[in-house]
Structures are given as C-alpha cells and as structure tokens.
Amino acid sequence: MQIANVVDKWTGAVKEVTIGATKDQGGTREKTVTVGGAKSIPFMDFDGDQGKRIVIAMDVYDIPPEDWPESLLKNYEDVVNDPASWAKKCAEEYGADLICLKLDGIHPDKGNKSADDAVNTVKSVLEAVNIPLIIWGCENNERDNEVMPKVSQAAAGERCLLGGATQDNYKTITAVCLADGHNLITQAPVDINIGKQVNILVTDLGFPLDRIVMFQTTGALGYGIEYCYSIHERGRIAALSGDNQMAVPVICDVGHEAWRAKEAKATDSEAPQWGSFAERGIMWEAITAVSLIQSGVDIIRMYHPKAVSITKEHIDKLT
C-alpha cells in the first residue's frame, strides 16, 4: 500500500534575529546568538528547515528574589545579592545561552532603585559574562520609561534584546532600541490580536521587523499553558503561511511562571501525596518548557539549572 505523502508546504519563514555583538560588530560579546529562521512547524524537519536551535536564557534579578522555594534558591544562595556573579554562574556553570537580566528592583513596590543603580547592574553583568543579554524592565510604565533609555544607552552597541513594548507603552522603548541598536521584545497579554497589533505599531515607528521578538504572557503547566500554547501555535502557522507581521521569533517566560505554581512550591509536609518537593519544581519547570518548545518558541527563560539541562537534552533528542 502506498503511504500518502503528508509533507506540508509552507510559504513563509520566521525572520532571524541576532542578539549580542562581538568586538568586530561594535560590542564586547565573545559570541552572538541568532534565533528564528524556521520554515516549518517545530521538529517537523521533513516539512522544511527548522531554523536556529531553541535557546535558553537564564534569569538574573537585580534584587534577591523573595518568594523562591528552597529547592530553587539553593542553586543561587551565594550569588543572589550580586547579579554579576549570578550571571557568571548561569553562563559558566549552568550552560545558559543568554542571560535575561530582569530589573525588578526599579519597580516602586520592589525597591524603587535608581536609574544609575540599574545602569551599574547592567554594566557589571556585561563585564561578568561574554554571552548576549536580554534586559527586561519592571513592567511599571513610568519607571521603565525613565530607566530603560539610560540602560539602553549604557549597553549601546551590545545589540541586547530589550523588553518590552506593549500596546499602551511602546514609543519610548522602541525609540531607544532603534537609537542604540538593540533588538526589541513586543509584549501582549495572552492575546494574539494585540500581539500582532504591537508589531504593527512599532514597525510604524520605523523599527525593523527583523529585530523584534514577540512575547505572550506565558502560562505554566496547570495555569493556562494551553492558551499560551495555542497562541504560539497559531502565530507560528500564520508566520509560515506568509503573515509577515507574525514572522518573528517568540520568547516565553517559563521559570518565573512555573515556580509560581503551588505544585512547585509546596513542601513535602504540605503536600506529601505530590511526590518529592526537591524534584517537583524542577519537573514543573521542565515539563512547561518541553511542552512549549513544540508550540513554536525560540527563546525560553528559565530558572533551575536541572530543568535547563533536562530541557536541553530533550531538544537534542527531538532535533
């Protein structure tokens, strides 16, 4: 019996975005990371080119995290007060492809750190590691609009990925990314229509589509992962079908979302029936990540080094 040929033919491709700049390119990174380029849905290599490998960005905060369970925190105990050492550990010991420096400390409710503090943190992290950086504001519009331009300028030439532009607040961050040569994250609240709209808004300001990475607020396993998954999937299919405004790489935030789940946090005495506390959070994060890699994502933000290695191994197996 002849087996039907089920190969799909796609007309579009996800654009490639390069993060980081080497000395020759005006930065100080030892290597750059290029994401995107997919010409078929994930891991269907018989349909078409898979593009660049999915990469892992490990999160580093500018203030010590307050609500991390012990099973997670123990990996960073010695570095939580020093973002530079934290980043170095992720890069050198834990195999991060990128560092995602999250400037939560500038938020009025989380320390209200000054722009100078943020700039110093960014500089120290850039010095400590030689891999490319994602720099993400605190998601308070007022503070982000005040601090991110200074941060952007301090990292000018490094071709970082800066977050994020939203439908209501995109002009400042777009302008500074354009001026300082950075890439830009466009954000939407689990809403594909708004996601597309933000891309249109920032490209209207003259920002090139091949420097955009899209972000839909991620849902962890058990906490809306299916909405997030189907949005990624629909966006990727639109991109491959020729929708130019959707043809950009996608980033997801797995670490933060997975470790917020009570399943990741509840201790052995609180939930003895759920299995070992030491393993549970890692598995929650890893399963969220390995599920989402099949939905069409290019960068995964993660926390736990063990979850990172499980995810990388899984990507290896599927590639």
Partner: peptide
C-alpha cells in the same frame, strides 16, 4: 485567513 489586529487593513 489573517490574524485580526486593530490595524488589519494596513497589515
């Protein structure tokens, strides 16, 4: 056949 956005005509 196209994902809706407020600027869908333009897109």
């Amino acid at each position: 056949k196209q994902i809706y956005s407020d600027s869908f005509l333009k897109a």
